[in-house]
């Protein structure tokens, strides 16, 4: 399974290299979208480990290795994020000269300026890199880091959301955005975990994880809808513009499809308690949710950029395949050698 993936990743990376020559700006956009799409998964896995550290429970003891395998790809995520960090001049509208910016953005330059932006990213990298390293240790050597770790994680994701999602459209502001991002990260990471390992877990554990996953998906629905109804009711130009861009013909259809796949189909599939313990059923629901996640992230990010469909249409998928493939290689390498003694025997293979 690994060899063909290596070839696909190499081919996708070659296409991305071609993109640098043809249209470097679009390549950086595509690379950022890919990093943010897949980067949610290790971040979400960290949160799952932190939640289990706070609450305990058999579900986490039996599935810890899985979340550790996902969280262990955090350094890869931090590494690929260097590309958009270097190319931030091409991405961030607030990097333009001060006098050309709208007034509301001029007032945000105290926060949105290159040195502070880079410093903040360094802090996120330290927090997430440190958490990933710490959380991948055997549980008896972790000590009590879950509570401070969770606080740092929440703060980092919130400001990361401000910096890499919202500041692409610097006139837009939403309080709920960081919370929405957290629910996206955890639900997509749990979906990936179930997709990879559902058959290897006991039915009762599977059911527990499926319940937590469903709760997190509903949490996302709550956050996403809170943001929508506040902005829709207020109907103020800077804020509603964010939704207007995303409800022009093509994006509206994509957004609806993403909602159906990310939330609605898994929600209906997870209503029955008996089916929640069914490994194959869960894997189908998880796969549908992950497709929805990928579409949803494109819907969140791409409308921020001015349309250059001739190049965006092939560089976007190429970057998704390249970064996603690298992540897959990282996860499969870790899954091959267990980090911690496993309680469950592998039934697959």
């Amino acid at each position: 399974m690994r060899r063909p993936v290596v070839f696909i990743v190499a081919a996708a990376l070659a296409v991305c290299l071609l993109g640098i020559v043809l249209d470097a700006r679009v390549l950086v956009q595509a690379w950022l979208a890919a990093c943010l799409t897949w980067g949610m998964l290790p971040l979400g896995a960290q949160a799952v480990l932190l939640i289990h550290g706070l609450t305990g429970g058999a579900w986490g003891d039996a599935s810890r290795h899985l979340w550790q395998a996902l969280a262990s790809t955090t350094p890869l995520f931090l590494l690929v994020m260097l590309v958009p960090l270097v190319g931030m001049g091409a991405l961030m509208p607030w990097m333009a000269p001060l006098e050309t910016l709208p007034e509301v953005v001029q007032h945000k330059r105290l926060y949105l300026n290159a040195p502070f932006f880079v410093a903040r990213n360094l802090i996120y990298a330290l927090i997430w890199g440190g958490l990933a390293w710490w959380l991948c240790r055997p549980p008896q050597r972790q000590g009590k880091i879950a509570a401070p770790g969770a606080i740092l994680w929440v703060l980092a994701v919130t400001f990361f959301g401000f910096d890499w999602f919202m500041s692409l459209e610097p006139t837009f502001y939403s309080d709920v955005f960081g919370l929405e991002l957290m629910t996206i990260a955890v639900s997509s990471a749990m979906a990936l975990g179930l997709l990879l390992e559902a058959p290897a877990l006991r039915p009762a554990i599977r059911g527990d994880i499926a319940n937590l996953w469903l709760a997190m998906l509903l949490g996302w629905a709550f956050m996403a809808f809170s943001q929508l109804i506040i902005i829709w009711s207020g109907n103020l130009p800077h804020e509603i513009g964010w939704y207007l861009k995303r409800s022009t013909t093509g994006w509206q259809a994509l957004g609806r499809l993403a909602f159906a796949l990310f939330l609605f189909v898994p929600f209906v599939m997870l209503l029955s308690s008996a089916l929640k313990r069914h490994a194959r059923w869960l894997r189908i629901a998880a796969a549908v949710c992950l497709v929805g996640h990928v579409l949803h992230m494109q819907w969140l990010i791409w409308p921020a950029f001015s349309a250059r469909l001739d190049h965006q249409a092939w560089l976007g998928p190429a970057a998704l395949i390249a970064v996603g493939g690298l992540g897959y290689l990282g996860v499969s390498r870790v899954m091959a050698r267990p980090l911690a003694p496993r309680e469950v025997r592998h039934e697959r293979h």
């Binding site: 929508l228 109804i229 829709w232 109907n235």
Partner: peptide, 14 residues
């Protein structure tokens, strides 16, 4: 109300 369509579904959801 507030320039919204009569059938403003987001307001009905809560």
């Amino acid at each position: 109300v507030g320039g919204k369509p009569l059938h403003g579904w987001p307001a009905f959801v809560p």
